[in-house]
């Protein structure tokens, strides 16, 4: 049982530190930040960055 949980932990660490997972995590973080800053309709965020959104190509606002 001990051996099994240790190998599971090793496997989790390996998967987490694998390049595809690291790339996916970083890309998701980047996409989330971009969405929050440029595309979110949450009023406080939208109002704070209204001018920036209107001043950046390919960013839609209203």
């Amino acid at each position: 049982m001990m051996v099994s949980s240790t190998s599971l932990w090793q496997r989790t660490k390996q998967v987490t530190l694998s390049v595809p997972v690291q790339v996916a995590l970083l890309a998701s973080l980047c996409a989330l930040i971009l969405w929050t800053l440029y595309f979110s309709t949450y009023p406080p965020v939208h109002d704070a960055l209204h001018a920036t959104r209107h001043g950046t190509a390919a960013v839609a606002c209203h």
Partner: peptide
Amino acid sequence: GIEPPLYIRFISLSYYTGIFVLSL
């Protein structure tokens, strides 16, 4: 004001995220 359609925002988001992923 009318919010921009989701698909238009996703298209633009994919461009900028795509640039980041390619750089990565």
